[in-house]
Amino acid sequence: MFERLILMIFSILGLLNGSLFALIMRKKNFFRYTFGGFLIGLASAGYFVWYAKGYDGLGLWSLWLGYLFCGLMVSQIVLFPPYIILSFFTIPKKWKRPVQKISLLVLLGALFIGIYGAIDGNRREVTEYINVYVENLPEAFDGYKAAQLTDTHIGPYFRYSDLPHEFDRAKAEGAQVVFFTGDLIDDVRHMPQTAEILSEKYDDFADGIIYVWGNHEYYRGQAYIHGFLKKTPVRILENEHMKITRNGDSLYVAGVDYPWVRGERSAAFQRQRKDMTEWAFEGIPQDAKVILLAHNSSFIDEGFARGAILTLTGHTHGTQFGLFGKPIITPFKFTRGLYTDGIHPGYVSRGSASWFPFRFSCPRELVIITLHRKQGMSRLPIAASDS
């Protein structure tokens, strides 16, 4: 069903863009350009659907071809709004030539954004460093380092063979634990190999790998994925918590499931989110220092309410598109980067990968967190940062 929808949407979008291009450029062979646009849309979406199922065993050429066609898919989305507007400006004859030149520049710009974003978005990853200053943090955790991985979406564009590199980078940064905040895998054919990698890399970190569920695990077969993860030493937190102990001092990690009530602004969703957090925090001493892990970024509000020293989330991918490092349009309250209520920080990772390789001004990231002991009140400016 999803594949048919993708094919239909981009075939129609290609047809419309071809028609608008012919209209703007006053081409006599109107139907030829319309049909050409349709074929481009169908071919790009068709390769995307085919490659997702048949990439195993193919050479590197197939991946680069995947970037090209994904770039063409994005280009068609970028082209459509300005072409709609430009088509109206070609009506006065005196505007025809300037508008046609602008339309060609728009076409080149859309192709650049799409193809560059598909290549750069999948191949470049940055490291983001977060320093968290905590009042009366137990001395044993002063300087404690953790890494956050999230949204790897193992499949055609981020393969299971890419996963060890992520853990190696975290180890090289001195992380003592890895927090994995969901959406591990889409192509569950490779869950056995993925589980082996998690088992092999677990001992690279003094406090192991701690995991919470994302929404894609449920899409792809949560019970199946759970069965393999249970064979590994990875600790899964399902609306519960665990304790990390060092020299008699304790740091608690609470983890929540993915809420499925529709409408994140609905009372029912907020009630489910609150219930999950209450279950995860149940039994934690009142004055304990707690890190909250969640996939859905709206749990940052729960972290603020509960006084978590840090809330780590993913899910949004930072929208994968922006300008100057900022998202342009977002349906999320917490989209990317660091947020705070004035004292407690929450972080939304842009993700370690994605199921669609395109990213523009929103690179993939590995997050390295360092905890610092701070005596007295350490108040942060109240802000919602999408950086």
Rank of each mutant, 00 (worst) to 15 (best):
F2T: 12
R4T: 11
I6R: 08
M8N: 07
I9K: 02
N17K: 05
N17S: 06
N17E: 02
F21P: 02
A22H: 09
I24C: 08
K28S: 11
K28A: 09
Y33K: 14
Y33L: 15
F35A: 14
L39E: 06
V49M: 05
G54P: 03
D56S: 09
G57A: 07
G59S: 12
L60T: 12
L65K: 04
G71I: 00
L72E: 08
Q76S: 13
I84G: 14
L86I: 03
F88G: 00
F89A: 08
F89R: 09
T90M: 03
I91R: 13
K93W: 04
W95I: 02
K101L: 15
L108Q: 03
G109E: 01
G114T: 01
Y116Q: 02
N122R: 11
R123Y: 00
R124H: 14
E128K: 13
I130P: 04
I130T: 05
Y133D: 12
F141E: 04
T152W: 03
H153T: 01
P156H: 05
Y157A: 02
R159G: 02
S161A: 12
D162H: 12
E166M: 14
D168Y: 09
A172V: 01
A175S: 11
Q176C: 00
V177W: 00
D187R: 00
V188Q: 04
R189T: 03
M191R: 04
P192M: 00
D203Y: 13
D207I: 02
I209G: 10
V212L: 08
G214W: 11
H216S: 09
G221M: 04
G227C: 04
T232A: 06
V234G: 10
R235T: 15
E240W: 06
E240R: 14
H241R: 07
M242F: 05
N247Y: 09
A254K: 11
G255H: 06
D257E: 13
G263P: 03
G263Q: 00
E264D: 08
E264A: 10
E264L: 08
R265E: 14
S266W: 00
A267W: 11
A267N: 12
F269P: 00
Q270L: 12
Q272S: 09
Q272G: 02
T277W: 09
E278R: 15
F281R: 15
G283E: 12
P285I: 05
P285D: 06
Q286I: 11
I291Y: 14
I291K: 15
I291N: 10
L292V: 12
G303V: 10
A305Y: 09
G307K: 12
A308V: 03
T313C: 13
T313A: 05
H315V: 05
H315M: 02
T316M: 03
T316H: 11
T319R: 15
Q320N: 11
P327G: 01
P331K: 01
F332E: 04
T335S: 10
T335L: 01
R336K: 14
G342D: 01
I343L: 13
P345G: 00
Y347R: 11
V348Y: 05
S352L: 06
A353W: 11
W355P: 03
P357Y: 00
P363D: 02
S378Q: 14
I382S: 10
I382N: 07
A384D: 13
D386E: 14
